[in-house]
């Protein structure tokens, strides 16, 4: 900078700075605009308009929409098929989430050992179902679990079965089978989540514990597990949220059958709003189910969050 600088120059520099600031604000808005348009159109507006559709008897085709107040909600809470789907999605969630969390943690702890050979190969294989389309997994698994499939063959070879079971066609077995396929599909992503948590634990802690003569199992329960609780809460939240919205796998694996034994809320909404198997498609009624269940999920998430904060507060005392 030259030493001939004057007050006048300073003044103009200040002005241009102000102008520059306005300019930057303009460009910032231009930069957030595309993402915000996608957000408003496909996330914010659907939430608002769901309420509107939920209070109408719109069939999705006609241009006239009749406002019918809370009639859809009234019908919904009286529909035993809705409550069946509601119950099923929680059975599905509570049946699969604990197992995929525990199995994922088990694999993560084993594969986190830096001395284990081929750890990255094992990790890649266990992760493979995660990157595969759930819809296609459903189609492939409908053969693997069929009477001619590998599961029945194996069970008969080891003498557990005399005649094959039609797992997906049986009222008793369909849901457990869907849960097992879901565990198989989602363990890999939980393993990666847990590995991210394990890598955040300082190595020195283990070294100190081994020096004191603690074994592997002891260090797992007194060091690893407590330190994984915070990230574990986030992982739990993810799993519950994902399992409650399951659609792709169930649609292609069982299509909610046999006789609604695996019908969950998302497949229920799909058949009400789009398939129109029972007469006309009912977008309004489907929206009411969506709003109702969307609220259920939000409340559940808030509840888990509340528990998490409570655990956090307790651990600080």
């Amino acid at each position: 900078m030259s030493n001939t600088e004057t007050t006048l120059n300073k003044q103009s520099a200040l002005n241009s700075k102000k102008k520059n600031k306005k300019n930057i604000a303009f460009w910032c808005w231009m930069f957030v605009l595309p993402n915000m348009i996608l957000f408003i159109l496909f996330q914010l507006w659907p939430i608002v308009s769901s309420w509107f559709y939920a209070m109408s008897n719109w069939n999705g085709l006609s241009s006239s929409i009749e406002f019918i107040g809370l009639a859809n909600f009234k019908e919904l809470v009286q529909d035993k098929y809705f409550w069946n789907a509601f119950k099923n999605v929680f059975i599905y969630s509570f049946g699969s989430v604990p197992f995929q969390l525990i199995l994922g943690l088990l694999f993560a702890v084993i594969l986190n050992n830096p001395k284990l050979k081929f750890a990255s190969v094992y990790r890649t294989f266990i992760f493979l179902p995660v990157i595969t389309s759930a819809a296609i997994i459903g189609i492939i698994m409908s053969f693997i679990w069929s009477s001619d499939g590998a599961v029945n063959y194996l069970l008969m070879q080891i003498g557990l079965l005399d005649t094959p079971i039609d797992f997906l066609g049986s009222m008793t077995w369909a849901m457990p089978t869907v849960i097992m396929v879901s565990i198989w599909m989602s363990t890999g992503i939980n393993m990666i989540f847990w590995l991210a948590g394990l890598q955040g634990i300082p190595k020195e802690l283990y070294e100190a514990a081994y020096m004191d003569g603690a074994g592997h199992i002891r260090t797992f329960f007194s060091i690893t597990l407590p330190l994984l609780v915070p990230i574990g809460a986030v992982i739990l939240l993810f799993n519950v949220a994902f399992s409650l919205r399951a659609f792709d796998l169930i649609k292609t694996l069982t299509d909610g059958g046999p006789f609604f034994a695996t019908d969950v809320v998302s497949t229920y909404i799909y058949s009400a709003a789009f398939a129109g198997e029972i007469g006309q498609p009912r977008m309004g009624y489907g929206s009411a189910a969506g709003v109702f269940f969307g609220f259920t999920i939000v409340f559940l998430m808030l509840f888990i969050q509340y528990l998490r904060n409570k655990v956090k507060a307790n651990s600080h005392v």
């Binding site: 957000f39 996330q43 909404i269 969307g294």
Partner: peptide, 27 residues
């Protein structure tokens, strides 16, 4: 407006998109 955008985006994180499928199709 930056704060408003942040709050909007983050609070939408746990709102399940799947149950908004009907308005998306309508749109």
């Amino acid at each position: 407006g930056k704060k408003v955008i942040y709050v909007l985006l983050v609070s939408s994180m746990f709102i399940p998109l799947e149950f908004s499928i009907i308005p998306i199709v309508a749109l």
